[in-house]
Nucleic acid binder design. Sequence first.
DNA 1: GAAATGCGCGCG
DNA 2: AAAGCGCGCGCATTTC
Length: 583
Amino acid sequence: MSAAAAWTVVGVSGDTATLVGLDADGGERGRDRVPLETLAQRVAAREAAGTRWVWSDTARVYPALLHAGVRVLRCRDLRLCHAILRDTALLDGDGSDAAAAAAAQLRAAAAWDAPAVDPGQAPPVALFELDGAAGRPAGPPQEIGEVLAEFARQRAAVAASTQPRRLDLLCAVESAGALVAAEMTAAGLPWDTAAHDAILTEVLGARPAGGGAPRRVAETAATVRALLGDDKASLDSPPKLLRSLHRVGVPARTTAKWELREYDHPVIAPLLEYKALMRLFTANGWAWLADWVRDGRFRPVYIPAGVVTGRWASSGGGALQIPRRLRAAVRADPGWTFVVADVAQLEPRVLAAMSGDTALAAAARGSDLYSGIVDSGAVATRAEAKVAMLGAMYGATTGESGRLVPRLRRTYRRAMALVDTAAREGERGGVVSTWLGRTSPAASRGWREVQSLASDENAGVVERERARRAAGDRGRFTRNFVVQGTAAEWALAWLAEVRLRLAALAPVPVEDAAPRSGPAFSRTPHLAFFLHDELIVHTPAARADEVDRIVRDAAAAAASLLFGDFPIDFPLDLHISPTGEKG
DNA sequence: GAAATGCGCGCG
DNA sequence: AAAGCGCGCGCATTTC
């Protein structure tokens, strides 16, 4: 097999792995069969020669490769790309025979709809473990014939679509994201257990020796119970708490903090305090620390495309919900630091670009889009601009937000038309697509039944109201889908660009303050965290300026990959700091 | 006793 | 300020 194959397709059957080299047109260049236990060495050798890997499920194969010390630069994750191509509306547009055939073949390959193997459950050394072993989900097919056939179907689908370049880019960044996700789990986020413990002790009081509530939690609970006039009052059961509140004259309808804040009663302040303390204690207290931090690393499991819009989800440890105050426990290794970067107002910027709204793009020039909106005269204050823009993207209809949205509609006609059109499409049961072609799920059977019941001439007011509300809910979902989903695509492109540029950096001398643990690549500047529109790079302090430039250049590259030369800024808030705090 | 559901709150 | 999008998780409660 030639060393210069554009693609190398990997399949597994029993204890044998098969590597098939393909040229850029998909023509087979050669085939190697190797024992599974030598696959990592083969991958390392071919990676050095340069190729793009094609496999069925990055979450299944890549953790084991990383564990064996092998990193790859590029891959195509057929499971993730299958989901994109199976659902994309870009194959339905022109009604060509080729597009229809490609779509039909993809949709018939149902085995590829299998869920991912949870990389958090798979042992890191079990390369391509047998299907369904130990009660795990089987995952997508791995046999080389099936893998080759699926790759061919996907290439045909992209080529036959109305936007081949966009779909191909989406598949590329989606797959790059799968590599990043596995690498970040392997590297982990540097986490200072002592700093975390100090925060908990300061906020909650000393950790109780025999379990039970920490001192300040117990004291606050006692204060609340005293003010409720019931020393046995349950504070953790919403219905019981509600009854206790009613008894002391607080007519709340729910126990949510945004509602409780509205009432003027001495019990409210300590009750909100109790809820906040209890939240920290239960969600990110000492038990969390013991469960999720090992050897100075928090290792979240990221689930690429775990959200319908294409955003990532996470599993275990609540990686995407780390409270801001605990960011201080994110602590770089000695001699190392973090480059922490996020995009200011990513979603409205993406909306400006995808709608081609030059007025909104002009307001987005510079670092604060909301100030730009005020300067345009659409609204009077920055706060109004923010509320109005969020309302436009989320579908607010009432309150201040709903009142302000029409002001934006006059000034930013194209941007508002894009989200309004997406909402109408959802309301009538259709689907909408992101800029690169990820398409929203079809209306559920239940949703369609609700609509059809209401359209019957005998339908009562209850049926009609239910259908109206369901249509509104779905419209708000599709309205937001196009913006949130395209923002996720921009962020994936940014992440992919950062990763490749970091990988191209010269290696750090090993004696330069290597991290305490982790795979080989984590001894050079590497991605350590990603959260929708923010990333953290862990780097030797001496290289932070280089990384700073890479992260900024990557943002510019992402903008031009998605939107070409459309004039839209994506300014970063970027900080170099040995703790993970923003700004 | 396990699984499903609702609530509330953390993050974007 | 108000409660409009997307998530995961812990607890209490309900259901099987």
